[in-house]
Write a protein that binds this DNA or RNA. Sequence first.
DNA 1: GTCTATAGCGGGATAGAC
DNA 2: GTCTATCCCGCTATAGAC
Lengths: 204, 204
Amino acid sequence: MGVKDSKTEQLIKDTAKRLFLTEGRMLATTQDIADAAGVNRTLLHYYFRSRDVLFDLVFKEALRELRERIQSVMLSTAPFREKIENLINVFFEELIKSPYLETFIVLQMNQDPGKYEELFRTLPGGEQKMKIFFKEIQAEMDKGTIPEMKPIHFFMNFFSLMAYPFVARPIYEKMFDLNDAAFKKLVRERKKVILLSLFKNHEV
Amino acid sequence: MGVKDSKTEQLIKDTAKRLFLTEGRMLATTQDIADAAGVNRTLLHYYFRSRDVLFDLVFKEALRELRERIQSVMLSTAPFREKIENLINVFFEELIKSPYLETFIVLQMNQDPGKYEELFRTLPGGEQKMKIFFKEIQAEMDKGTIPEMKPIHFFMNFFSLMAYPFVARPIYEKMFDLNDAAFKKLVRERKKVILLSLFKNHEV
DNA sequence: GTCTATAGCGGGATAGAC
DNA sequence: GTCTATCCCGCTATAGAC
């Protein structure tokens, strides 16, 4: 493969990524993608064999990146509260880059939960890592900085507070008559709000 | 229309509802629905003209019911904390009946935000009603029972904590190796957890 | 590596017999 | 009101020329 080849291949992949993850056009056809990339539709098949393969590729790549960034923060040695702040920053950063990634994940997993299970199933050694994070959560409860609950509930709370506004974005936009700028402003504010809501010490 | 007619019509609608909302088969074809109902596929067109019409009918009905139940609690005269408890109960009751309703809403709104806007846009007089609820939230902050934030953030927090676990269900099931019973148990526990997380007085 | 042409299928929808 | 037969379209995918 020469330089020119891989350039076209990359162009198609990037375009697909943009349509799927940034613009939320999850049902974009091969023709849509080819048009947006300005190439002949057959090239999509030439490089990726089928729409499914391209689709999975984009999805898995984005998901792997998000997971790795989150995991690396989750397993860092930072103090608990700082770790939570870092997780919020990473999550929001990724979700602002790919506003539809979260919706995309939810959709895919609901459509065919078996297909991507290896992406979520605890990795070798991962279970141990999750336990370490859960132990940290428990330690915070013992210190009294967060309310008493099973660590898994704290975990669910955390991700619910971060992720839901992104998947429910169009609903909130209608409900409260928000434009793009207003929504983004809310999202920025939420970084503090989430901290405020997770910790018992209600000061920021 | 005789009795027999409307019986078939109802059967098709109920089956579609079951596939779409209970089993999460949101991409079920007209053939799938007809097969599941045990009727000829043409009857679906006979009664509902097109798949789209049937689809919208099911979606709008379910959504209207959920919205009405939530609104009636939200605007009741119950004390704030009791009102929140009632909202949690109503929401969970509906979501356990139709586990995919929330995912369905999110998906539809992301797919085509304009199509269903009248279902979310503030109704005539609705804006006023929302303002009343927001005033109640503000009053609670003044009393010091919930942390200080814009009411809209409290609102988002509340619905995030309730709704996200339902849309992310397949993810959590993989991630923590949960079976159906284990997930349902977690959801039941969350009623208390959500209360615990919303209010400053961290006792239940 | 890129194009044109075409095959093939799955799905929605309708006509018309019963 | 219910069925069979058929049409039509959009989309994926591939063969084969350049």
